[in-house]
Amino acid sequence: SFRCFSALNPALKSTLDKVVTSNKVVLFMKGNKDFPQCGFSNTVVQILKSLDVPFETLDILENELLRQALKEYSNWPTFPQLYIDGQFFGGCDITVEAYKSGELQESLERAMCS
């Protein structure tokens, strides 16, 4: 019989589809917005807080299956992972760059008004 090593089965994929669209801004991170457990996650939380945007955080340290599945779902190997309007936006470096260039504010504004 086959053994499938993919964490992302169809049921989990459809659950993730729902989770990333459950809120306009969803951040998968280490820890939560009040207690980030990694500097990279904390950076993104602080940026989102400074922009005064409502966002939901999910702690990937609490769920190893979620953590592995998300890497495949986003095709992104690390955390944090920021989703805006159901679309993967990027990790910490991309968020910082986009914050500096104003692109993040634009994307958030578009999402909030859609």
Partner: peptide, 24 residues
């Protein structure tokens, strides 16, 4: 930018298994 970072991540696919943190 997202595509560029993905290209770097996938070039380092093997290394990423052991890399603790990567900042592009």
């Amino acid at each position: 930018l997202l595509e560029r970072h993905r290209m770097v991540n996938s070039a380092l696919e093997e290394e990423m298994k052991e890399i603790h943190a990567l900042s592009i």
